[in-house]
Every structure is written in C-alpha cells, then in structure tokens.
C-alpha cells in the first residue's frame, strides 16, 4: 500500500503525465479522444479546454469535498455533487471566457459543453479523493492529468493526420486503426513505469 499523501506534488505532476496518463494508462475520456482526433488543430483546442477544466474542477471539487461533503457526512452522494459542480463550473467558465477572452472563446467555446461529460474530468476528481491527496497534490495532479490528456490527443491527431492518405486494409480504417495506434502508444508508455508510482 502506497502512502499517497506523502508523495511530493511534483512527482504526482510528472507521474500523471507519463506513468498514470489519463488516456494511455487509465483509458479515461476516450469518446472525445477518438472522435476529435482527426485534425491536429481541433485536437489541440480540445486538449487546452480539457486541461483548463480539469485544473479548475480539481481545485473546486477538492474544496467542496473537504469543506462541504465531509462535514455534512454525505460522502456517498459525492458523484452527483461532483457532476453538478463540474457542470456549473463549465457554464461559468464559458460565460467568463466569452466576456473577457473572446478570441479564446471562439477557439474553445464549442468544446466546453462537450467537456462537461468527459469522464477524464470526473475521473481526475475521483482519483484525487480516493488517493487522499492534499490540496497542492490535487492541484498538480489536475495540471498533470490535463497536460497528459492534451499530449496524448495531440500525438494521436498528428499520427492520424500523417496517416490520412495511407492505404489501409478496409476493415481497419477509421476506429480500428485508431485503437491500434492508441494501444501501441500505451505500450510505449509502459516504458516509463517504475520511474514513479502513484497508483
């Protein structure tokens, strides 16, 4: 049993990119990862939006869990509450972005509602609760998870863009080859295992 709360936040940061990557090790957030990865430009837009939302929701959900859910003794309702908090936050982030960062909103705006139901977001929140992370650990875990997700979708999109004109066996085209590439990337990432252990 690992003593999670003793791990340095920076170790968690690097581990959540390399050895505990949201996509390549935990296979979370696959729906948008598979569907929005045919073009590098949109993939990186979605990656930025996911990173932003993961960081903000991790921080807010950590505060909500420790200062609201635990004192009220309603831990078993946490899934519903986390989802409500995520949905509300995404709404507010979208409104604020539209107001103050209209250019960024023009790029990311269409992805934000999509992200509300991305399981990497809820997954990140639940991991930090299950592993009893402290505040700084949760913050860096959020940043790392987001960056890791962003990196993974960008890698896949770059490969798929280069592959666009390749001749594939008809049965493999589309989703088939995408799963194979993801699997190979995940295998490559096993090479990092052992450097850090956080799960």
């Amino acid at each position: 049993m690992i003593e999670f709360s003793a791990i340095s936040p920076f170790v968690i940061f690097f581990a959540s990119i390399a050895t505990s990557n949201m996509i390549l090790n935990n296979f979370l957030g696959m729906c948008s990862y598979l569907t929005i990865s045919s073009e590098y430009k949109t993939a990186t837009g979605l990656g930025k939006a996911v990173t932003l939302v993961i960081v903000v929701t991790n921080v807010i959900n950590w505060l909500v869990y420790h200062y609201v859910i635990v004192p009220l003794n309603i831990e078993y309702m946490r899934y519903i509450i986390f989802i409500m908090v995520i949905a509300a936050l995404v709404q507010i982030i979208e409104m604020a972005m539209d107001r103050y960062l209209p250019d960024l909103h023009a790029n990311l705006g269409i992805f934000l509602p999509l992200i509300t139901v991305n399981c990497a977001i809820l997954g990140s929140t639940l991991f930090m609760i299950i592993r009893l992370y402290g505040f700084w650990q949760s913050l860096l875990f959020g940043i790392g998870s987001g960056l890791g997700w962003w990196m993974a979708i960008c890698m896949l999109a770059a490969i798929r863009e280069r592959m666009a004109r390749a001749k594939l066996p008809p049965g493999l085209a589309g989703a088939g080859i995408t799963f194979i590439i993801t699997g190979l990337m995940a295998l490559a990432f096993i090479g990092f295992s052992g450097i850090f252990t956080i799960q």
């Binding site: 609201v68 309702m77 519903i80 509450i81 409500m84 709404q91 409104m95 604020a96």
Partner: peptide, 16 residues
C-alpha cells in the same frame, strides 16, 4: 444537503 448545494450552484450561475 444536496438541495442546498444545488441551490448554491444555481444562485452562483444566476449571479454569473
């Protein structure tokens, strides 16, 4: 508790 949390979130969204 859950109603209260929903209420707070709704108020925050309305204010926002």
């Amino acid at each position: 508790s859950v109603t209260g949390i929903s209420l707070v979130l709704a108020v925050i969204i309305s204010l926002a």
